[in-house]
């Protein structure tokens, strides 16, 4: 069973627009935008990974905090997709994340993110008991996404430590200070979130050289391996065995929605690892899943045939020892 923790789940609301009004925010009367299409689904990094895994027939349990009407919708969506759920209920309502995708600019969505509900000490205590219980069944743990108000930046570090003590490998799929602190606990794989700020701590990750420095830094801090998305179609994997560059031979012009691509990448890696592939091959499958996800309207492409087709387009290059 693969356990995913999403401390700050969201209801993702995606809107497709023909265009954005040129006078947006400039008129006195306000602006009105008519969506061509919309999709609503449970969201958050760990949750998306669970949805991907369940579609591949892999047993997965999603954990985190749910509250209010939005929490009920998130729960219902996950159960309908075959994900096992073990959430802690809180008083405040879960957040709604709005994403605007303008026609022809699927690779450049506009996000409106809420902070999320506050998690109090009682809820946290209940969560810890559940988490310890689920660790005994888990083959991997994915810690994913931003933390909600009320949780310490050491939250992921403490979860990673508890998993390490139980011998359960951790995939850290997050960003910022909580991710940096958790790296010290020796996670199996770190996948830094670079969507908002392309940095690893105070190290920028814009150029290839900067990415290489940041990846090496992650290993030196304790990570067993680190995967950094350099650009839309290129990733670097760092491990004690070496550095690999992955490049997908696809055109970003074909991308319709990149929102879930990172989560498909992590989900794909876990599918590969669950099938007995080594990390390099697993990352290759993850990249294929990410590219397939970017070419459909939904956040994730759950059709294995389409992912398999993308495998042929992923090139892997060994770049030497880290």
């Amino acid at each position: 069973m693969i356990l995913t923790v999403t401390p700050n789940p969201a209801l993702d609301k995606l809107y497709w627009l023909r265009s954005l009004p040129e006078d947006l925010g400039l008129t006195e009367e306000g602006s009105s935008i008519r969506a061509e299409k919309s999709l609503t689904s449970a969201g958050g990094k760990g949750i998306n990974v669970s949805v991907f895994l369940a579609a591949h027939g892999i047993e997965t349990v999603a954990m985190g905090f749910l509250g209010g009407h939005t929490g009920q919708i998130i729960l219902r969506d996950l159960l309908s997709r075959g994900v096992s759920t073990n959430f802690v209920w809180i008083e405040e309502e879960n957040r709604v994340n709005v994403v605007l995708i303008v026609q022809g600019k699927g690779y450049h969505p506009i996000h409106i993110h809420e902070a999320g509900p506050r998690v109090d000490a009682d809820a946290l205590q209940i969560f810890w008991r559940k988490y310890q219980r689920m660790l005994s069944r888990a083959s991997y743990v994915v810690l994913g996404g931003a933390l909600p108000p009320g949780l310490s930046p050491d939250f992921y570090r403490e979860l990673a430590r508890a998993a390490r003590e139980r011998g359960v490998p951790v995939i850290l799929h997050a960003g910022g200070e909580p991710m940096l602190r958790a790296v010290a606990e020796g996670p199996f794989l770190v996948k830094p979130d670079v969507r908002e700020v392309a940095c690893f701590g105070d190290m920028p990750m814009h150029t290839e050289e900067e990415v290489l420095s940041a990846g090496r830094k992650a290993l030196s801090l304790g990570a067993h391996a680190c995967l950094v998305s350099h650009h839309l179609t290129g990733d670097f994997l760092f491990s004690p065995d070496g550095i690999w560059k992955f490049e997908a031979k696809v055109s970003p012009a074909a991308f319709r929605n990149v929102i879930g691509a990172d989560d498909a990448l992590v989900g794909g890696i876990l599918v590969g690892l669950s099938q007995g592939k080594d990390l390099v091959e697993a990352v290759k499958y993850g990249m294929a899943a990410a590219e397939a996800a970017a070419e459909v309207d939904e956040k994730l492409c759950l059709e294995r045939e389409k992912i398999a087709e993308k495998m042929e387009l992923i090139e892997v290059q060994y770049k030497g020892k880290p």
Binding site: S84, T85, N86, F87, W89, I126, R129
Partner: peptide
């Protein structure tokens, strides 16, 4: 229904009602 919602033996009655 793959819902693992549960309480422990020492959970309070109030917590169970809310859940």
């Amino acid at each position: 229904r793959r819902d693992l919602t549960a309480v422990e033996a020492d959970s309070s009655v109030l917590h169970a009602i809310k859940l």
